[in-house]
Amino acid sequence: MEIPYTVVARRDTGVWNAKVGIWLFLASEVMLFGGLFSAYVFLRLDAGPGDWPHGVLNVPVGTFNTAILIISSVTVVLAWAALKMRQFTRYRIYMAITILCGVVFLVVKLGYEWPQKYVHFGARIKESELAKYEKYLGNQHLLAEGFAPRKEITGHLHNPQALHDPNIKEYEIALDPVNADPTNKKMDRPHFFYVPPTEKIGIVEKADVEYANMFLPKHSSYFATYFTITGLHGAHVLAGVLVFCYMLLPASTRLYRQNPEHLANRVEVAGLFWHFVDLIWIFVFPLFYLL
């Protein structure tokens, strides 16, 4: 006996095997990302006022990447539609565009966005010493405006060896605009465009610092969740790209010649996975970039 319903749907359930399989798999993926997002909710609810950073990611770049993923979602469904209409050349073009989008997304994420964070520095000041750094934090001003306090001084670290050398007693930071000019009302809310650190150097004594690090996963709960969720999401994008590459190989062409419906089913299943990856990003984008 051969395994039935690999291509043609079973009558009483109305679906073919892989369709059930992929939806079950996506159900488990919902729970996987559900666990991570619930961790995000848990940690964010638990964070005190001013402990959750805002506006530290590059919004235009994130918007661009969101658009890239949405476009790839459209092209993959068009690729499937082309196969259904037996337009093989068109299918290959759409597939190639989808792969290109996936690669662009990964390059932007791993080649630009993440490395930009590794070189950024943030020092969280001890609760008791906040007043000492009022000139960088501007908490009086924020209090008057009804905003949560700032507890962190960020920018580019001028003396990176200070992170490891216990003999160096202070951090020299090329301050971010928000710390260079903290009482400026324009700084109360995040910017749309990324603004690089200023020329102004701020000195922070290590003894006053609760915790300081580059913008790495270990920097804070925010970056821990950001890197973990976008990393896992990136791994999914990579997996999708690899599957789509397979769909362009000669083996798939041969399958098309023998049984086009089978290839269409495969593309549909891979497409469902890809849409799901897009769907996750639709939530990741506002949660980390905008809110």
Binding site: A27, S28, E29, V30, M31, K218, S220, S221, A224
Partner: peptide
């Protein structure tokens, strides 16, 4: 298994991050 294991998998990933990347989940 399908619906209960993934949240633990996410938790394992987080604990792995805590151990390897120094995060504080």
């Amino acid at each position: 298994l399908l619906l209960a294991f993934p949240p633990l998998e996410s938790a394992l990933i987080m604990q792995l991050m805590d151990r390897l990347a120094g995060t504080s989940f």
